[in-house]
Design a protein around this nucleic acid. Structure first.
Length: 569
DNA sequence: GTGCAGACTTAGAAGCTGGACG
DNA sequence: CGTCCAGCTTCTAAGTCTGCAC
């Protein structure tokens, strides 16, 4: 079955503020109701078997499922879980269960492990049946018709209840994320579309027909009180259009960035403190691709910062460091509590300004006390329509990729070598944007495997070469037989193949090593204008499939369709 | 300006799967 | 034929930014 491709990029976009004309969908898909544990799976309190009410048991299973996770070693997680769990208990349970340390969830934990084991060990037929069942759900709930075209829904499943897994030192980690019911969910749908029916005996919170927003369903999550939305997949027109526009804005910045840079450099010596702070902040956002950095309310989330919310303790000034003058050393936790460390030599004026901003302040004080993201963005918007702090990240990321590709690509190299060059260009961007990942748990093992494979390959090459040598001898000594000659040719081909495989292994080892703690995905998906990569592929005869997998090609369909090798960011 | 709700993008980790390999 | 693991998909948290009320 061939999927329809909607070439929306050749159509006139909707006017501002209108996201769609018609929209039909079947609502969100709810997780299954809680199923009680088998009677033989027991919970113990102070070593004694204890039966739990349905709700208390359900919440206990959330914890049991995480028993072997590091989360359950953290005090805040345990404290939050226990507090919320007790709220779900019956009075009797609450009277008895007073201490988490006296609870034993081991049988529950083992039960779930067995269950997941059993799932893996299902027969082919059983697995196929499950797959078909899933496909049916995706067919029904995973599709939406927008403006007459079938579009994939991104997250059509309502988030199941569980324990909140906040990142870093999140003060709310371990709290109970409650089950979402139809009465919590608002449905957004076209006026003329049939309204999806809520689960048996339930009612939606509300039905609305608001074409100024893109979401299909919405509910309020109980941990932070913010909204969660069901929206379309990245391949949908409504997302693609926006994505395209994002890169066009970034390209516009390219046109005027020199002027903006001149101006903020000039502002480093402004009379007004707030303008100086803005100018230094802009320098960081531009040069280091820092995020804007909103003020966040303390105690509600992990203590992380971006540019505007940097505090005194996050930078250290060094008049000299490792041979450089005027070095700013950054060390702070950014989005997702990912640590940012960087030592950057800066202009003397920037350095002197930072000294000034830090003067008479204590750790905990804002470095840019006269600056907010909204005042900064307001100013940026006046420099160029649509300009905000994050446009600099997009611009600098895409621009870096373009430059790196231009300088790293060797036109005569083979595809394997070129892919390494591409990945290195991509890596430069990921480093700029500080996209890190935990090294894969099996990293060392993987490396050893590769080294072994490499050794084996080398041996194989040696053997084949030896064989060729001997066959040649035979050929000359024993009357130049046609048969031997053919064998030699065959062996030569084999040697060639092996050499290529060896080269590929070598490259993949280099690539893996260099990529140990770097995540390329985020920049590839969110920061790099796909047209740069597509033009590069076309120019250097690298198949696009080597750069973008199927999902990514669907997301970037617009770019694949409109880009030829002459595109320059 | 400031604070807040709402909408939407960006983010790394977890979970899953299918194909390589012995 | 089973095992392993790499790449993909899914998940959902955590940002940014806009617009509105005061």
């Amino acid at each position: 079955m061939k999927e329809e491709v909607w070439r929306w990029w050749e159509e006139t976009p909707h006017p501002d503020g209108i996201k769609w004309k018609t929209m039909e969908h079947n609502g969100p898909y709810f997780p299954p109701a809680y199923e009680r544990l088998p009677k033989n799976v027991k919970f113990y309190y102070e070593g004694e078997v204890m039966e739990l009410s349905e709700l208390a048991e359900e919440v206990a299973t959330f914890y049991a499922k995480m028993l072997e996770h590091d989360y359950t070693k953290k005090d805040i997680f345990n404290k939050n879980f226990f507090e919320d769990w007790r709220k779900e208990m019956t009075d009797e349970e609450r009277k008895k269960i007073k201490k988490l340390e006296k609870c034993n969830f081991q049988e529950m934990c083992d039960f779930f492990k067995e269950q997941s084991e059993a799932r893996k060990n299902k027969t082919k037929e059983e697995k196929l049946a499950l797959k078909e069942e899933n496909a049916k759900i995706a067919e029904e709930y995973g599709l939406c018709t927008m403006d007459g075209h079938k579009q994939k829904v991104g997250n059509f499943r309502i988030e199941p209840p569980g324990l909140f897994r906040g990142r870093g030192d999140h003060p709310k980690q371990g709290k109970l994320k409650k089950r979402v019911k139809a009465k919590n969910v608002i449905i957004n749908i076209g006026k003329d579309a049939p309204v999806p029916s809520p689960p048996e005996g339930e009612k939606w919170k509300a039905i609305q027909h608001d074409a100024s927003v893109t979401w299909l369903a919405c509910w309020t999550e109980n941990i932070t009180g913010s909204n969660k939305y069901v929206m379309l997949n990245a391949a949908a027109r409504i997302k693609g259009e926006k994505d395209w526009q994002k890169y066009e804005t970034a390209r516009k910045l390219k046109e005027c960035v020199h002027k903006i840079r001149d101006e903020y450099k000039n502002d480093w010596k402004a009379k007004e403190m707030r303008i100086r702070q803005r100018a230094v902040a802009m320098y960081f956002i531009d040069k280091l691709a820092l995020r804007a950095g909103h003020e966040k309310d303390e105690g509600e989330s992990a203590d992380t910062v971006g540019c505007c919310s940097l505090r005194v303790e996050h930078i250290t000034l060094h008049a000299q460091k490792e041979g450089d003058d005027y070095v700013v050393e950054f060390d702070f936790l950014g989005k997702d509590s990912i640590r940012y460390t960087n030592s950057v030599p800066v202009e003397k004026r920037v350095y002197k300004n930072l000294e000034l901003f830090k003067k008479d302040k204590q750790p905990g004080d804002d470095l840019f006390d006269r600056l907010t993201t909204s005042s900064l963005n307001k100013f940026l918007g006046e420099q160029m329509p649509g300009l905000t702090a994050k446009v600099f990240r997009t611009y600098n990321a895409s621009n870096t990729l373009q430059q790196q590709l231009d300088s790293l690509t060797e036109p005569d190299a083979n595809v394997t070598a070129k892919l390494l060059q591409y990945n290195r260009a991509n890596r430069a961007v990921a480093i700029l944007c500080n996209h890190q990942r935990a090294p894969p748990k099996t990293f060392d093992k993987q490396m050893t495997n590769l080294v072994n494979k490499l050794k084996d390959k080398k041996k194989a090459i040696k053997t084949v070469k030896k064989e060729i040598k001997e066959l040649k001898k035979e050929y000359h000594n024993n009357g130049k037989s046609e048969k031997v000659k053919n064998t030699i040719e065959k062996k030569k081909k084999q040697a060639e193949r092996l050499e290529e495989q060896y080269f590929k292994l070598e490259v993949s080892m280099t690539d893996k090593e260099e990529n140990k703690e770097i995540a390329l995905g985020t920049s590839k998906l969110n920061y790099l204008d796909p047209r740069i990569s597509i033009a590069w592929c076309k120019k250097h005869e690298v198949p696009i499939e080597k750069i973008y997998n199927k999902t990514q090609r669907e997301k970037f369909q617009w770019a694949i369709d409109m880009t030829d090798e002459t595109f320059v960011f």
